[in-house]
Amino acid sequence: MTQVIISPAKANSMYWLGRYTERVYLELHLLRICFDFMIDGKPEEYNRYLASIGNTFLYPDLAAIRSGLVHDKNNPVSVLACVEMANDNAILLRDEIMSPTLGYIQMSLEYLRHAAAESKEPDLDELQKLTDWMLAFWGSIEERVYDERVKNFLRLGKLIEHLDMNIRFSYKFYRIEEAFTSLLKCYDFEPRAFSGDALEDLKKLITEQEYDPRDPVYVNKVLLLLGKVVIL
């Protein structure tokens, strides 16, 4: 449907739905890399990944780490916890995003809940389904949602999460720059959704000269600003 105006609560749900779906997509991508490091048993490599993703949970062995990062609903960085959060927001937006779009989140949730209940070892091949469903979710948004404001709030969440994760994982500057340029387009579309001060500070920090993802002070400063720049 094309809605005339959007309530603050719905705009907030759109933003967080965008964030959590992007988080799920990127986590799956990064977990594949992390699991790959585990094959060779290089703790310094996968520990760096665990720290970057924000994991604070301790697991007794590699199998438990693998399982925990996917199926442990109590661990806020697990894929299941992120899909639960995406669903909590999506379910409030059925009238905006339509049932078939919501269906991709529901399928992901059901898949993970069943797998967690059966204590299944995460299967990277099977988890590709979730990646496909996240991509299908975004495709379905493009296909079924005509209201540009709705798309913009979803995209806003997606871009903030994309920047957040890319900076945490020290992606190259050109990747950050691309996402930040897209974020500025969202600003042009709806400047009232932004904190002008936080955006100005971000502009100063996200430059080729300033970009230093290996410096924890820099990373924390940028992540903090990313958390503040959208005011919904």
Binding site: M1, Q3, I91, L92, R94, D95, M98, S99
Partner: peptide, 11 residues
Amino acid sequence: SYLAEKTGAVL
């Protein structure tokens, strides 16, 4: 939510 989707009403 389903009736809102199908009738085009705002939930």
